[in-house]
Computed example of a mutant assay.
Amino acid sequence: MNNQPGFHYQEEIDKLRERFRFDFVSLAWVQPAEDRFVLTWQYASGNLNERYKRIVLHSGKGIAGIVFKTGKPMLIQNVAADLSSRDLFNYPIIVAEQLKSLGAVPLWEGKRVVGVLLAGYRTEDRLDESSFELFQQGLETEFGAFRVKEGAHP
Rank of each mutant, 00 (worst) to 15 (best):
A64G: 15
E50W: 08
E18N: 04
M1Y: 08
Q98T: 13
Y43I: 02
H8R: 13
H8W: 08
S59C: 11
G151P: 01
G110Y: 05
F20L: 07
F135P: 08
R17K: 13
L139V: 02
G115K: 11
I76S: 04
A80E: 15
P92G: 05
S59L: 12
Q4N: 13
E142K: 15
V114P: 06
G46V: 03
N3C: 11
G65L: 00
N49C: 10
L48R: 14
E12H: 15
D23H: 10
L118D: 06
R54M: 07
M1N: 10
E150V: 06
I63Q: 00
D14S: 04
G110W: 04
A119E: 09
T123M: 09
V79I: 10
Y52D: 03
S26C: 15
E50P: 06
P106K: 02
L99N: 09
E97V: 08
R86F: 01
A104T: 08
L118P: 02
V25P: 05
W29R: 03
G110F: 03
E18Q: 02
A152R: 10
P154W: 01
I66N: 05
Y91M: 01
Q4E: 08
A33W: 02
Y9K: 03
A80M: 12
V67Y: 11
T40A: 00
R147F: 02
L83C: 05
F37Y: 15
A44P: 06
A119I: 04
